[in-house]
Design a protein around this nucleic acid. Sequence first.
DNA 1: GAACGTAATTATGAATGCAAAATGCAGTCA
DNA 2: TGACTGCATTTTGCATTCATAATTACGTTC
Lengths: 217, 217
Amino acid sequence: MNQMIQRPSLHAELTDRLRHMVIEDQLSPGEKIPEKDLCALFGVSRTPLREALKVLASEGLVVLEVNRGARVAEVTVEELDKTFPVLALLEQLVGELAASSIDDDGIAAVTALHDSMLAAFRAGDRPTYFQANQDIHSALLAAAGNDVLESHHRLVATRVLRARFMVNMSDTRWAEAIAEHEEMLTHLSARDGEALGQVMKRHMLNKYRALKAALAA
Amino acid sequence: MNQMIQRPSLHAELTDRLRHMVIEDQLSPGEKIPEKDLCALFGVSRTPLREALKVLASEGLVVLEVNRGARVAEVTVEELDKTFPVLALLEQLVGELAASSIDDDGIAAVTALHDSMLAAFRAGDRPTYFQANQDIHSALLAAAGNDVLESHHRLVATRVLRARFMVNMSDTRWAEAIAEHEEMLTHLSARDGEALGQVMKRHMLNKYRALKAALAA
DNA sequence: GAACGTAATTATGAATGCAAAATGCAGTCA
DNA sequence: TGACTGCATTTTGCATTCATAATTACGTTC
């Protein structure tokens, strides 16, 4: 049993915090990132901050220009077009693997999350819905039991996750998404990986379609 | 010993070079990476080198331990088990997209690479075969015209690419791989994305199976 | 007032410095 | 022999410093 407590290094902590700020739109796409300001904000020197920026750049969340510093990567329509097909494929695999690997406790946990998501939907509480939705997908990802899949899914998903701040999900799409989640839960409970994978893929492609439609308007 | 660098941004160049060294097994799995030595080797200070190591760590090629520095990530059987299913899926998508996007020049280029690969096969020249093989996959990846897919494919593939140093491909598997490549070229020429995707997926899974078998022996 | 050129200021890339942690090595004791 | 301790050395994480590229400020000219 290894319970060694070690303070995470500054650069790792900074990477997480900055990534979170980008995902949560606290740093907006296109925004310049002056090192000095963030150093002051976090109370650290430029060295670990710059290390964090390099990592975020390799994840595609930040763009580095030589001698011009860093800015938050834009979320472009082209990127969405190229990302969603990949993401849909990964989702399908997540579904297939999760259905065959998940245990009863896992199904119970997802069911609980599903119910609280439904509650948020009925209450019209979008932030809570969004969080529960995220948690469900995270739970399925974990249940798939493939950490390579998990890390790459996160990497791909993170970049387009920010698109949610670009448009507002329509009520009809919201209801549709709920229906898809109902389907997912059914297939998960039946441990039908094939079906779950198909629904999750479709779910992701529908999200993409809705996003595109909203962006066009 | 002294390979001075004069390209803009040392850390980017260092990242590329170190990644290459890891892929080419010049830095072996598990090997410790003392910053001082590499600084001397490249003639740079520790700052950009450390930035590069952070990036490689986020790619999973290097493992960082707090206050203990960096070592080259091991290639484990568990990792292969989890990576190949993902990689096979990505390959399938590459095939589907490449077949529909590629132009006549592209097909000609792949055909040329294919022929030189065949020549290497007949000559029993494994290094040359391996390079041509890589080039074909790169060409198809580029032809797919999806840079998100491309970057993530590279990310996933790089980690298991190193497994080729663990075992020697058998002659029977080699011949089988050649046959699969013949199939691929046929489907590519016919621009049959569905079929190409299937073959490429199967090709990858067969590679995995052969690798596993060789490791077991 | 706009366009341009040049000096002052600022921000960035990389090297160096410093404190803390880890490692290696005698020497000690069982 | 083997484990432990104390100390010197090395290595690492981060802060600071330095050089240079980029940006701004400002005057000049048209």
